[in-house]
Design a protein around this nucleic acid. Structure first.
Lengths: 120, 120
DNA sequence: TGGTAATATCACTATACGTTGATATAGTGA
DNA sequence: TCACTATATCAACGTATAGTGATATTACCA
């Protein structure tokens, strides 16, 4: 494990961190983030790609914008959203790896238990 | 930026990831995690350190246990909780860095704006 | 000016969840 | 068995928020 500094956070810092995690704690918002992985898109495009309602998509985009994860640009009647904090992908990758590890461990436990006392 | 693979997650995977983020989206739970940074502790110890109510601490610990972030060990009438997924600290560090970057950028913008047109 | 498209916001409902006091459960020692 | 400690769970309350249909706002075009 590399660079395991584990800085000790306290008080207000933890509140800020929790806030950021909360912004990423909705599947719909993660879908929007991943839809923007290959560049900026309009709200309409995102509505189509995520198959969500326009009002809902707009609201989730506002949350991510407020959290500093996304940026916004207006052109004509359209609004273009883009990723401004690329670290979200690192976060998701880390979580994914962790989930995989956990599932792999569960699988090992299950296999060991189900084969316990079974003839080899 | 190293190892920026950005794997593309879809459907159920995003749900799992969102779940994990949700487990980390409460300040109290982050406080518990950081209280456990230096080793396993009993519920009583955690109640004292976090200055929370016993019922509340117990419930938050259950959430983190279910999420796979913590592990539990019983000894006598006490329950010892410990970190089982060290990646949570990496996650928090990443978020912290990101928040710092954003605040630094805001500071630069503010300074530039407040000094605009001011005599040098 | 009137009409249309794109987006944001409002109002409302349903649900999830954090907090808290009270109670239940389990282990320990007298 | 009885009392005590530690922990988990229950019940109730209030708040936050996701989803949704309707409306407001803004830009563009005829």
């Amino acid at each position: 494990m590399a660079g395991n500094t584990k800085r000790n956070l306290s008080g207000a810092a933890l509140d800020r961190v929790a806030e950021r995690f909360k912004a990423l704690s909705e599947p719909m918002r993660l879908r929007l983030i991943y839809a923007l992985m290959d560049g900026e898109k309009t709200v309409s495009q995102l509505v189509t790609e995520t198959e969500g309602l326009q009002a809902n998509v707009s609201k989730h985009l506002a949350v991510l914008l407020d959290a500093g994860v996304l940026g916004r640009r207006k052109e004509g009647t359209s609004a273009y959203y883009r990723i401004t904090d690329e670290s979200v992908f690192e976060l998701c990758d880390l979580v994914c790896g962790s989930i995989e590890d956990r599932l792999a461990a569960e699988l090992r436990n299950f296999s060991a238990a189900s084969s316990a006392g079974r003839p080899s």
